[in-house]
Deep mutational scan, measured.
Amino acid sequence: MPGGGPEMDDYMETLKDEEDALWENVECNRHMLSRYINPAKLTPYLRQCKVIDEQDEDEVLNAPMLPSKINRAGRLLDILHTKGQRGYVVFLESLEFYYPELYKLVTGKEPTRRFSTIVVEEGHEGLTHFLMNEVIKLQQQMKAKDLQRCELLARLRQLEDEKKQMTLTRVELLTFQERYYKMKEERDSYNDELVKVKDDNYNLAMRYAQLSEEKNMAVMRSRDLQLEIDQLKHRLNKMEEECKLERNQSLKLKNDIENRPKKEQVLELERENEMLKTKNQELQSIIQAGKRSLPDSDKAILDILEHDRKEALEDRQELVNRIYNLQEEARQAEELRDKYLEEKEDLELKCSTLGKDCEMYKHRMNTVMLQLEEVERERDQAFHSRDEAQTQYSQCLIEKDKYRKQIRELEEKNDEMRIEMVRREACIVNLESKLRRLSKDSNNLDQSLPRNLPVTIISQDFGDASPRTNGQEADDSSTSEESPEDSKYFLPYHPPQRRMNLKGIQLQRAKS
């Protein structure tokens, strides 16, 4: 015994090295194993092979420090690593049964499904019991997946119906949107047309105001020219009257000059006056001389005659003075006559000038009245044309509004008919989907599995289990394997941990 101590140590070291070499393959693929292994699927088989106990299973599945599946799978690998070579062998058998691809990844061999460990530990009855539990578990999982698949199909059909409904609603909204954009385009076109009409109206108003201003300026210029013409006519008439007055005065002077006595007659009258003065002096001298030589009687007679002569001279002087006064009065009367005649001529000139001015103003008033009548006639014609244009424009607008209203009513009726057609199509689609759903539900009910399987069917299934373990590994792997896509769409199922009653199965096998 003492001599065998070193050999035992060498043997233990060799086993430990082999164990480390075995687990080295697992550690190399630890990331892939932790990512894809579900500990809840492996722990029943590991407990059946007595590699882990209930406490280890509870620690792996329910520990609060292991929230994710990767953490739980890593903890399970750590626990199996502590179990040595047996933990490695049982772990590979569980991978061979549940995850053939991972088994091939770790060992590089094809899975054979021999279950040597569980046969050694529990015997064939334990293997049968384990396989029966796994089959029931798989059936329950398949039923749950079928239910989930039916629910998802129903949800899918519902979503398809909602999608069709949303599509129809979208078509309806597109119809309304198209109608909205069309009405918006019509409104924009009408606004552009309105702005264009306003611009045209403004341009016409500006043109009309400009023409009116030009016409008023032309009328004012015409009036100024007419006033200048009238003033020139007035000056012409005044000059004609002055010329006529000057002509009359010149004719009067000419007549006075023609009626003036001649120079010879004046000289002859002056000679006669001198001769008479000479004779008068001679007679006076004779009379003076006679007075001195005459007697007293003759002197008395001469005195009487002288007195008579003096009286006659006085009378004559009075007559001469009277004649002079009369001549002066006649001259003054002639001057007054000439003055009055001049005033008369001036008044006649003024009267004729005023008459011509009156005629001029009368003509001017007639011209202004004619212009006013023409302006009123043009204004009435413009008003009439404007009223006709406004009436025609309003009539066109009324007809346009009428046609637009008819078009809008027809478009609304068309839209309502399209919407009604879309709604009826939606109703038809809904009815078809309901009919299809009812038909599929009836087919699913016919094809669904019963909840409680008979014992004979279970025994028959387990009677055929042994050949399947040898020759149909691919079928078992397809039913027991969970793909990543299934984990996305289906909830994980945790079967209840219970042991099955095998009395009925044993009785059935005894009868057979």
Rank of each mutant, 00 (worst) to 15 (best):
T14S: 11
Y11W: 13
I136V: 05
V106S: 00
Y88I: 03
D20R: 06
D58I: 10
H124N: 15
L131N: 10
V51S: 07
T128E: 12
Q55S: 10
G4M: 11
N25G: 07
M65N: 07
I79E: 00
L127I: 15
V90I: 14
K16W: 06
M32Y: 07
L76P: 04
E18D: 07
Y98L: 14
D17W: 08
L80E: 02
G108S: 00
N133C: 15
L42N: 00
H81G: 03
E13Q: 07
K145W: 12
S116T: 11
I37R: 04
E24P: 07
P67F: 05
L76V: 01
M8S: 12
I52M: 10
F97H: 09
S116D: 10
E134R: 14
F115M: 10
Q139D: 10
L92F: 05
E110H: 00
I136F: 02
P111Q: 08
L76E: 04
C49P: 11
V106G: 01
N38K: 02
A40R: 01
L15R: 10
M142C: 14
N71W: 02
S68I: 04
K69A: 04
P64F: 14
I136P: 05
S34A: 13
T112N: 14
L15Q: 09
L127D: 03
I70V: 14
K104I: 00
L80R: 02
Y36E: 03
V89I: 11
E13H: 12
I70D: 02
S94N: 01
P44E: 02
V106H: 00
L76A: 04
L76G: 01
Q141L: 14
A40H: 04
N62C: 03
M32T: 08
L66V: 02
E134D: 10
S68G: 05
E57L: 02
T43N: 06
D9F: 08
K143W: 09
D78C: 05
S34F: 04
P67H: 09
L95E: 01
H129N: 02
K69L: 05
N38R: 03
R72C: 02
H81L: 05
H31N: 05
G87T: 08
N38W: 03
L77S: 01
E57W: 02
K41P: 02
P67E: 02
N25R: 07
S116P: 15
K41G: 06
L42S: 04
N71V: 08
G4C: 11
W23T: 11
G5M: 14
E59N: 07
E101G: 00
E24N: 02
M65D: 01
L102I: 07
R114V: 14
Q139F: 04
E96F: 00
L42W: 00
V51P: 09
A63L: 02
E54Q: 10
Q139R: 14
G87M: 06
P44L: 04
R86C: 11
P44I: 06
E134P: 06
T107I: 03
Q140M: 09
L77Q: 02
M65F: 10
Y45L: 11
E7H: 15
E13R: 08
M132K: 09
L66W: 03
D146N: 13
L76C: 01
S116K: 09
A73R: 03
A21I: 03
H129C: 05
V89L: 00
D56E: 10
H129E: 07
V119L: 02
R47Y: 05
N25H: 03
R72L: 02
W23K: 00
P64I: 04
N71K: 04
P67C: 12
Y36W: 07
E27R: 01
Q55Y: 09
A144T: 11
V51W: 09
K41A: 03
D78M: 01
H124F: 08
Y98P: 00
V60K: 00
N25I: 04
F130T: 15
F130L: 13
D17R: 13
S68E: 05
L77H: 00
D58Q: 09
S116Y: 06
E57H: 06
G84H: 03
P111Y: 04
D9R: 11
R47P: 07
T112C: 14
Y11K: 03
Y45P: 06
K145H: 09
D9I: 09
R30Y: 04
R75S: 01
L61P: 02
Y88V: 07
G87W: 00
E24I: 09
L33H: 01
G5Y: 13
V60D: 06
V119A: 14
A144D: 12
M65Q: 00
K137E: 08
E7Y: 13
H129L: 04
G5P: 11
L22C: 06
R35N: 04
A40P: 06
D58P: 01
E24D: 04
C49I: 08
L92W: 07
L131M: 05
D78E: 04
Y45W: 07
M12P: 11
P67V: 14
V119H: 15
E110F: 09
L92A: 05
V51L: 10
R113Q: 14
L77D: 01
L76Q: 06
E59T: 05
D10N: 08
M132D: 07
E27H: 03
Y36P: 02
Y45M: 12
M65H: 09
E122Q: 04
Q85N: 03
E121N: 14
E125T: 13
D10K: 10
L92V: 15
A63S: 12
L22R: 05
L77V: 07
Q55L: 09
E13N: 11
M142D: 08
V135E: 05
D53H: 15
E54V: 11
D17H: 13
M8P: 12
I136N: 12
V89A: 10
L46Y: 13
Y103L: 10
S34Y: 02
K145C: 04
T43G: 05
Q140I: 13
I118T: 14
N25D: 13
L80W: 04
L61S: 01
Y36G: 06
G84R: 02
E18C: 10
I37V: 08
E121F: 05
N133W: 14
P64N: 06
A40N: 07
E24R: 05
A21S: 13
V89W: 15
T112L: 14
V119C: 15
N133D: 01
R47I: 06
V119M: 15
M132V: 04
C28P: 01
L80D: 01
F130H: 15
T82G: 10
E110T: 07
L15M: 10
H124S: 15
H124Y: 03
N38P: 02
P111R: 09
G126L: 14
L102M: 01
N62S: 11
F115N: 15
D56Y: 11
A63W: 00
K145R: 13
N29S: 07
K41L: 01
R86Y: 01
F91M: 13
Q48A: 09
E7Q: 12
E121C: 13
D53L: 07
G84V: 04
F115P: 15
T82C: 07
